[in-house]
């Protein structure tokens, strides 16, 4: 493990650019339901959300995963590779909530002609409350 990758200018503790979806709601959830066959009442109907123990309808966990991947892709670019992603859906992405996907580098190592970074990743709401924490591994091409 190194503290810094000088070729790419990465350092432990660096945060990656965020991926933000403001005011998430049925226009996001329904599109995802349509492609992932996920027309589940808790994601469509406030009453179903309340019956499940939450204040209203909420978004799919897998859509939060997609937002984390979008953040990682946006950072590493098309030359980079997402090797792994894990996250736990601790709090729901309630309807009308802004979701911010974030990541912070925890380790960096050289691996052949690539630089491999491990990150803690998470989604949070607009007030900074963590929703889906996890980890990720990405590989970036090391400049010659």
């Amino acid at each position: 493990m190194t503290q810094q990758d000088t070729a790419l200018g990465l350092g432990i503790g660096d945060e990656i650019p965020t991926f933000v979806r403001e005011n998430t709601g049925l226009h996001h959830f329904n599109r995802y339901a349509a492609v992932n066959e996920e027309f589940v009442p808790i994601h469509m109907d406030d009453e179903a959300g309340r019956e499940a123990g939450y204040p209203r309808a909420f978004g799919m966990g897998n859509l939060s995963t997609a937002y984390l991947l979008n953040a990682l892709r946006g950072w590493i670019g098309e030359e980079g590779t997402v090797r792994a992603l894990a996250c736990q859906f601790r709090q729901p992405n309630l309807k009308d909530t802004t979701v911010v996907a974030r990541g912070r580098i925890t380790t960096i190592r050289a691996e052949g002609d690539e630089t491999v970074a491990e990150l803690e990743v998470w989604t949070e709401d607009g007030d900074g409350n963590q929703l889906a924490p996890g980890t990720a591994t990405v590989a970036l091409v090391t400049p010659a």
Partner: peptide, 12 residues
Amino acid sequence: RSGLNGGTESEF
């Protein structure tokens, strides 16, 4: 009576 997605771990 109810179910939720608790989380995922993926290796690509």
